[in-house]
Design a protein around this nucleic acid. Structure first.
Lengths: 197, 197
DNA sequence: TGCATTACATACTAGTTAGTATGATGCAAA
DNA sequence: TTTGCATCATACTAACTAGTATGTAATGCA
């Protein structure tokens, strides 16, 4: 019980610091300084710093992305609208995330995936899952005659995901205004795919 | 003459290492180890590591982005096509960039702009310049009756730039295939704006 | 030619880094 | 009660970090 508590506390503290400053720029001393624990506790629960990073992804970032972006798509009657609103909710209403620091998953892809294979594999899974969820939504919309069958679902998912990744990057330098602009054009794009626009 | 040479050599070496590994993960010792010079040379030409980073942006990254993405837009007769082809050229033909490591400018925005004001200001300028160039292209296309005046140029630039930033991030985990998919949907989107599709 | 400045090289420092070694405490089962 | 394991704390190390101090060779200029 207390074991889980300590581990989770360290993990949450690490998440916040790494989210704001990056993985390499956040030291283990930094992390434990922000908790009531010491280095002994850290290395009791995590084998290495890399181990902490992997736990961070699989236990915090991945569930968070799934809850915000994937789950809404699998339970909806209006797949096209759900793509839009899941992203809108995440960008405008998620209190956990600060526009200045972007998206935790995208940040880690940027920083770690080119140089660390374990990070690369974990982060790939998140993106591929989201990609699949969007593509299934598009196929569902085709079946429901909401959008024409000529639409290539892979292209839609590519534009949606790259747009999300990009706007979370640009938000760091342009602020909230660009989120609203992006949501406006995303909405128009998705509606332009539908048969009765 | 030789002074410029040493500085430029250090700068180019630093660019390559920082492009691949990030700014924080690249040490000054790393950089000079990849040149024929020593720490004395480094600190003769650069006041601090931050100073090197700023020089990197203004002397290598900014001119590179302007040449690849901004200049083609200001000298063309077909502004919409130029937006597409400038990005296509950069993604598929630029030998300097490796898909695995993304875009140097986007990488630095991701890593440094939230925590370093000088980086933030320099990198903002690049994005704003590109944004303005795209918006002017859209306005030009409106004047030439290529696209309807109802199109909001700010929205187009937002989708194009966020798409570029995002796909250079996703390229790190998905490889070249996603560049082609992205270029396909970018082409379709831009053509969907035109009057005679 | 003499001199000052530039352009480096070498050797250092103080602080930080991930990770380890060892010890203390509590708790659960025997 | 005692044994053993889990849960931490403290103190350490070796390697690395940005930056400095100081010296020296080359270069431009009077």
């Amino acid at each position: 019980m207390q074991k889980q508590n300590t581990r989770v506390k360290i993990l949450n503290t690490a998440f916040e610091l790494i989210y704001k400053n990056g993985f390499n720029a956040t030291s283990i001393d930094d992390i434990i300084k922000h908790t009531a624990f010491t280095k002994g506790a850290f290395y009791h629960h995590f084998k290495t710093k890399e181990d902490l990073g992997i736990a961070l992804i699989s236990e915090i970032i991945k569930p968070g992305m799934e809850k915000a972006l994937i789950l809404p798509l699998s339970t909806t009657k209006d797949p096209i609208a759900s793509i839009y609103y899941s992203i809108k909710d995440l960008l405008l209403n998620d209190e956990l995330f600060d526009i200045k620091y972007g998206c935790p998953a995208i940040n880690l892809i940027e920083e770690m995936s080119p140089t660390n294979k374990k990070f690369y594999l974990q982060l790939s899974q998140i993106i591929i899952s989201w990609e699949n969820a969007i593509e299934q939504s598009i196929e569902k919309a085709k079946q429901n005659k909401i959008i024409p069958s000529s639409i290539i679902s892979k292209e839609v998912s590519c534009l949606v995901i790259s747009g999300y990744a990009g706007i979370r990057n640009l938000g760091k330098i342009k602020g909230y205004e660009c989120y609203n602009t992006y949501l406006g054009v995303l909405d128009k794009y998705l509606k332009s795919l539908t048969i009765n626009q």
